[in-house]
Design a protein around this nucleic acid. Structure first.
Length: 602
RNA sequence: GGGGGCGUAGCUCAAUUGGUUAGAGCGCUGCCCUGUCACGGCAGAGGUUGCGGGUUCGAGCCCCGUCGCUCCCGCCA
């Protein structure tokens, strides 16, 4: 094989009269009978090659004429200026072409199952096919761009972390099951019958142990595994930028990540982002946006009207308030022309979130059209009018419930309304706008009504805010955690916390608050409590969803588009057909027997 | 576990809402074509309408089941 002397995208008029060799794929072929053009593509770009029957043998000409797209060839020829008027301004090499002298077919491709040369049609191809023939899908320039950008960001991250004094440390993939949190993938042990490893949901415990070890600054691009149902932004195996530091507080984490994001955006998009990010408390986020990961690129903010409707003759509202609930509303500006079907969709959305319905006011022709407005006093209407700045064409939507569900319902409604407004062209969002946000002061604990117990909102190693520690016993609900989330454009990009480093506080959380039995604590976390006794520095960290980060930078809604070999929504790989069956012998070695007979395979 | 969408030629989509022989563009095959770059022209092949049942004189279309892809809820400390 003749090796390439230059890449397809590098040839310019400077190379005229040079003899070059190109290695690559047949991108497209144009056979004009007397003259034949083949665009040759490699990872970097493409170049037009010319087969002229007066220059090449008829054998070579016929061979070239019969090549299918995506065949792999090595072509040697002389670079020359294209004849006047035949430049192709669409490609960087459009001023030159290669007069082919010789060609070697390295692999004659069959007819493809779907086109890879035309970005228009290729991007519309059924994802099922794209996943089955992933190697072809990845050949598309758009997908190659994603892979490159991912690699670039990974490198930028490593360089930045290195500069900041972090050590990249690998942690085990074969871990121990800790049945808190996400469902785990299990790996049965051959050497230890009836025992299993678990794949880590994250390196959480190891990175804290590394702090006890004195590493002080740790990071890792860590693979994590969670056996939960998939989504567009969730895969069973995914990558986190995992970070932990000692002798720091929350401000140090904010500053570090703001720096890292600045470096990443610069490397990936050449864009400068703010030096520091806006901060918002969990309560503010819920009150204003109805969600703990607000998209602040548009308004449609939620307002509280509990005070205004406290004495209302509309019993649904006043009654809710008397029971300790709240009245919330948002103005979907300019959405009064919502169709009946869309309004029904909004109502269903509210009901699916536990609301009993969705009260609304359509403001059209100077009139408030609504089944409930007749119950409102002038005073109440006036308050709505001034707070929500109601104008003709607006749609007002209400929630009446206890605080959290009321916020959450309108949070969902808000996002849906934004979609509807975008469809109507009344809301446009700059695709290169990125709203970074720290969400802080999360409640440390949440109460599980069914199980009648408290559980950690984040994880049990999260430290309480110092001035709230005394409330742990008396008023667990109001204890804030030293937890923070990084949110970009309504996407939760990462989260972390300052950890508990005193064994006594950790014991209080496990025993008194979470009420985990002593023997269970020992079995699951004994080694951590031990470690904390032997010189544990104060520490904290964060983990960023690397796949989500890349998806945001590539402006694609699904992380499958930025993972080379992703799984389907049912967790299968269509290319390798995994998961698959295993030999009886393998099962015997692992001391395992299926409870259900496997379906016979074709 | 639950709800929604999709499944027709290799690919992307039609099929007048249950009615003759399931069509188009691209791709593919053959022939023609010396400056194309979405090359062009002529001709042709290509279908178990995902699969299995049912209703009907008649099903791509309606019903039931099933498989696959996808979005969402639950779930994801």
């Amino acid at each position: 094989m003749k090796k390439r002397t230059i890449h397809c995208n590098a040839i310019r008029i400077d190379h005229i009269d040079q003899v070059v060799t190109l290695n690559g794929w047949v991108h497209s072929r144009r056979d004009l009978g007397g003259v034949l053009f083949i665009d040759l593509r490699d990872r970097e770009g493409r170049t037009q090659t010319v087969f002229d029957p007066s220059d090449v043998s008829s054998e070579l000409f016929d061979q070239a004429a019969s090549l299918h797209s995506e065949s792999v060839v090595s072509v040697t020829g002389k670079v020359r200026r294209r004849p006047e008027g035949t430049d192709n301004t669409k490609i960087p090499t459009g001023e030159v072409e290669i007069m082919v002298q010789s060609m070697e077919v390295l692999n004659a491709a069959d007819v493809l199952p779907f086109p890879v040369d035309d970005p228009e049609t290729a991007s519309k191809v059924n994802e099922e096919l794209r996943l089955k023939y992933r190697y072809l899908d990845l050949r598309r320039p758009e997908m190659m761009r994603h892979l490159r950008l991912r690699s670039k960001v990974a490198t930028a991250t490593r360089v930045f972390m290195e500069e900041e004094g972090f050590l990249e440390v690998e942690t085990p993939t074969l871990f121990k099951s800790t049945p808190e949190g996400a469902r785990e993938f299990l790996v049965p042990s051959r050497l230890h019958p009836s025992q299993a490893y678990a794949l880590p949901q994250s390196p959480q415990q190891f990175k804290q142990i590394l702090m006890v070890s004195g590493v002080e600054k740790y990071f890792q691009l860590a693979r994590c595994y969670r056996d939960e149902d998939l989504r567009a932004d969730r895969q069973p195996e995914f990558t986190q930028v995992d970070i932990e530091m000692s002798f720091i507080d929350r401000e140090d984490i904010y500053a570090l990540i703001e720096g890292l994001m600045g470096r990443v955006w610069e490397a990936a998009l050449g864009q400068t982002i703010p030096k520091s990010f806006r901060r918002i408390t969990f309560d503010q986020a819920m009150n204003t946006y109805g969600i703990d990961k607000p998209d602040t690129r548009f308004g449609l903010e939620i307002h509280d009207f509990s005070e205004a409707f406290k004495e209302s003759s509309f019993k649904v509202f006043s009654g809710t308030i008397q029971k300790g609930g709240v009245i919330k509303a948002l103005n979907a500006k300019g959405l009064a022309d919502v169709t009946q079907g869309q309004m029904e969709g909004l109502t269903q959305l509210a009901i699916s979130q536990g609301a009993k319905g969705l009260a609304f006011i359509k403001v059209e022709g100077g009139e408030w059209k609504s089944p409930i407005v007749k119950f409102f006093s002038e005073q109440e209407k006036q308050t709505l009018q001034s707070t929500l700045e109601i104008e003709d064409g607006d749609l007002i939507l209400f929630a009446a419930d206890s605080w959290l569900p009321a916020c959450e319902v309108l949070g969902r409604i808000r996002l849906r309304c934004a979609e509807l407004l975008q469809q109507r062209g009344r809301l446009t969002i700059d695709p290169l706008r990125f709203d970074f946000l720290w969400v802080t002061d999360f409640p440390l604990l949440s109460f599980d009504k069914e199980m009648n117990r408290w559980y950690s909102s984040h994880h049990p190693f999260t430290a309480p805010v110092e001035e709230d520690v005394d409330l742990l016993a008396s008023d667990p609900r109001s204890v804030r955690g030293q937890h923070y989330d990084l949110v970009v454009n309504g996407v939760e990009l990462g989260g972390g916390s300052i950890r508990i480093h005193q064994p006594s506080v950790q014991r209080t959380i496990f025993e008194q608050v979470l009420q985990i039995p002593e023997d269970v604590i020992q079995a699951r976390f004994g080694y951590m409590l031990d470690a904390f006794r032997y010189g544990c520095p104060p520490h904290g960290g964060i983990a960023l969803g690397f796949d989500r980060l890349i998806a945001i930078l590539c402006q694609t809604p699904s992380i499958r588009d930025v993972i080379a070999f992703p799984k389907t929504a049912k967790g299968t790989c269509l290319m390798t057909e995994s998961p698959g069956s295993v030999d009886a012998r393998q099962l015997r070695d692992l001391h395992i027997q299926w409870r259900q007979q496997p379906k016979s395979e074709g």
